[in-house]
Design a protein around this nucleic acid. Structure first.
Lengths: 178, 178
DNA sequence: GAAAAAAAACCGTCCAGGTAGTATAGTAAA
DNA sequence: TTTACTATACTACCTGGACGGTTTTTTTTC
């Protein structure tokens, strides 16, 4: 194995293009150039554009799952560790979120079915969050609010100031332990 | 055919295509066919694809603004009528939301600057929501949670069951008046 | 442990099909 | 006369993917 990283490099390149230049600029050639590989080389790893986008989504879903799981494993809380971890990771990790944004947009554009791994992820989390020792409705609201932050970052629609964002974060956190 | 409606029909057709077939199928020809107009006719109203997408966003921003404003005007509440209206409209109006989804995705794909009218809208609402007689952090959380519903509908990621959605809605509503 | 064979990783060009936008000539109604 | 279109043809360009190579790495054989 020359290096399993080549595939990953290509996926990062693709995400970068979507983030910085938009989905219409995600072409095979542009991705190849960004990744420093030839078009043929790219097609060796991902035999079609759809395969490339599928690769993006699968990869980020796995990453995100691990990230949350690691945070949960570290937690010493008795109740609400899942929702706490979900909020922590989303509020404090701009980087994987950016890849997530790119992956979601690309998948939505190319073929909605490619979003299935994300759907699975959400279903898993929602189940965990609802069975985590706190009121499931409350937990769901916290999840939704966290997703709301996400939506505004995805479209750059309305950035809460850092201060207000922090206030929201603290209030949600306290609410978990109430 | 009535005059002013043609442009709007074209915009609806464009939204429909984005919703049902994805952004890559939003071509000038497909839009013209869907709207029952010739390609030349479409280009008469919208001289470029970007102009078309701009039309989509401008139109839906205006619509949404009116919708919320109407709900606020109807409200008899003293406090929290803005956040209440925002939640009401978003939770209970699947239709304009669909157009919003299409417009957001199209604008994000074609040219992020086209999202400016939506940004203005959000800034206006956020200001109103924070100056509406209730704790601004609480109000912001409710807004975010409402946006969270939106996110999951946009990507069809995780549909809360109707029951849970209703529970969330009720809890948020009660929280406003607390 | 070196040579040979096989597999994996990668290159770069070519092409058919599609798309935005232009051009033009004409029609119908207000 | 202007506005609001229809219909068709055309251009200039881009893109996905096929294809036939080449190089690098791994495995097998002697």
């Amino acid at each position: 194995m020359a290096r399993a990283t080549r595939k990953i490099e290509i996926l990062h390149a693709a995400s970068k293009i979507v983030s910085e230049r938009g989905i219409f600029n995600l072409t095979l050639e542009a991705t190849a150039i960004e990744a420093g590989v030839s078009k043929g080389g790219l097609l060796y790893h991902f035999p079609s554009k759809e395969a490339l986008v599928k690769g993006m989504v699968d990869h980020l879903a796995e990453n995100y799952r691990d990230k949350i799981a690691a945070s949960v494993a570290e937690s010493t809380k008795e109740k609400g560790k899942w929702i706490q971890s979900y909020a922590d990771v989303t509020f404090n990790n701009p980087y994987p979120n950016k890849e997530m944004h790119a992956g979601l947009l690309a998948a939505k554009a190319v073929n909605s079915d490619l979003l299935d791994p994300i759907r699975d992820l959400y279903n898993e989390w929602q189940t965990k969050i609802e069975q985590d020792g706190i009121d499931p409705v409350k937990a769901t609201i916290i999840r939704l609010a966290t997703d709301g932050i996400w939506l505004s970052e995805l479209f750059d629609i309305h950035h809460l100031g850092e201060e207000r964002k922090e206030e929201v974060y603290v209030k949600l956190k306290n609410w978990i332990d109430e």
